[in-house]
Simulated assay, not measured.
Amino acid sequence: MAEAKRSLNYEASFIISKPGSDPQPYLWRHGVSEDGIEMEHLDQQNGPGREVVRIGNNVSYFESHRPAYTLASGYILGPLPHVLLNEPMSLLDAYEFVVVGKGRISGRAAQQIRMVSKDKSRFGYNLWLDHKTGLPLKINMMDIKGQKIEQIQITTLDVTDTPSAFFERIDTNALPEVVQLPDSKENKQNWQLGFVPVGMEQVKHSVRQLPENGGPLEYIMISDGLVDVSVYLQRATATASESDIVARFGSDIYYSRVQGSVLVTVIGKIPASTANALASSITLVQ
Results as ranks from 00 to 15, higher is better:
residue 56 G to P: 01
residue 137 L to D: 05
residue 121 S to L: 05
residue 26 Y to N: 01
residue 85 L to D: 14
residue 128 W to R: 00
residue 15 I to P: 04
residue 6 R to V: 00
residue 146 G to I: 09
residue 64 S to N: 08
residue 195 F to L: 06
residue 216 P to W: 04
residue 239 T to N: 10
residue 281 S to P: 04
residue 185 K to I: 13
residue 284 L to R: 14
residue 161 D to C: 02
residue 194 G to R: 08
residue 55 I to R: 09
residue 271 P to Y: 11
residue 118 K to H: 07
residue 5 K to I: 15
residue 239 T to I: 11
residue 156 T to G: 06
residue 96 E to G: 13
residue 192 Q to Y: 07
residue 225 G to E: 07
residue 147 Q to W: 05
residue 246 V to K: 07
residue 271 P to E: 04
residue 221 M to V: 14
residue 203 V to C: 08
residue 67 P to D: 08
residue 178 V to M: 07
residue 236 A to Y: 04
residue 284 L to K: 14
residue 283 T to E: 03
residue 100 V to L: 09
residue 119 D to N: 03
residue 157 L to K: 01
residue 157 L to D: 11
residue 55 I to P: 03
residue 275 A to C: 05
residue 217 L to H: 08
residue 76 I to W: 04
residue 153 Q to T: 13
residue 142 M to H: 02
residue 252 D to Q: 12
residue 19 P to V: 00
residue 282 I to A: 04
residue 42 L to A: 02
residue 141 M to I: 04
residue 236 A to M: 04
residue 193 L to C: 06
residue 145 K to Y: 12
residue 277 A to F: 06
residue 125 Y to F: 15
residue 91 L to F: 10
residue 217 L to Q: 11
residue 66 R to F: 06
residue 154 I to H: 13
residue 162 T to K: 15
residue 152 I to A: 01
residue 29 R to H: 05
